[in-house]
Amino acid sequence: MDRAILSDIELRTTTGRLYYYGSMAVLLAIAVVVLFPFVYAFTSGLKGSTEIFTSGLQLLPQNPQWENYTTAWNKFEIAKLFFNSFVIVSVGVFLRLSISALAAYGLSRLKPMGGRYLMMLFFITLMIPGIAYLVPLFVTLKDVPILHISLLESYWGLWLPYAASAFAIFVLKNFFDRIPTEILDSARIDGASQLQILLRIVLPLSRSILLILAVLTFMDLWKDYLLPYLVITNPQYQPITVRLFYLADSNHGVNLQMAAAFIALMPPLMIAILLQRFMKTGVTMGSIKG
């Protein structure tokens, strides 16, 4: 059943075994290379500040300095950086899903006039790479048209760009399109308003896709560097991606840098391992967006 190129019978022959264990050896070797930076950051973070420069091939510390991790945690103010990132990203995810779900429901169920043209307008933003309008986006955020306020140094300057995702709208619209009309019609006849239908019927039915989108968006936004680097320059409010690199770049012991980097790498790794099911579906779904 689970055969691929090689069959179970072939696997019992010498050549079959050679192919199989050869493949496994290659995969394991690559896995070691892939995981190496994480392991290296962890063990280097345990080394003394001079030992780290002389250890050469020695991966493990002679005398593990666990206090490096608490020092790094305090010195780089990692708790605050995590908190900043968390606020930026979770509100970003919430806004993106809300706005996209509303728009997708409107497009899918309420048949707005000119809906086809709206879809095209949304689609354009998928076709044009973000760099094409990064500079004018910055200028726009600096001086919002009509209102003439600046969104720089404010989380809104990140939340609004993060909220706009044509990909999320299309994915949700596709999903909503497939919900049988009868369910929604009967709710209409019972007197439910469109908003109630969306909140109490459509969204609960779309839990799986919303969860996948949420996880995918969360990981995506957590990684973002350039936009927060441009928009938030006050170190008190910068996310971890921006601030930690800056701090590591200025003078701190390399062992502390490694310890801090390892701590900072942990949350995304944990999420990826725990929620791998959703990420897998999400990534293969995301490949269609190209």
Binding site: I5, F245, M279
Partner: peptide, 30 residues
């Protein structure tokens, strides 16, 4: 190669995926 594995498919899939989830600005420190 992963498709060919009879077990541990999930292991390789997760391990290879890990670098893609970490922020590049942190990874470059290492």
């Amino acid at each position: 190669l992963i498709r060919e594995m009879r077990n541990a498919k999930g292991f390789f899939r997760v391990v290879y995926f890990l670098p893609t989830v970490v922020p590049i600005s942190i990874a470059v420190i290492v």
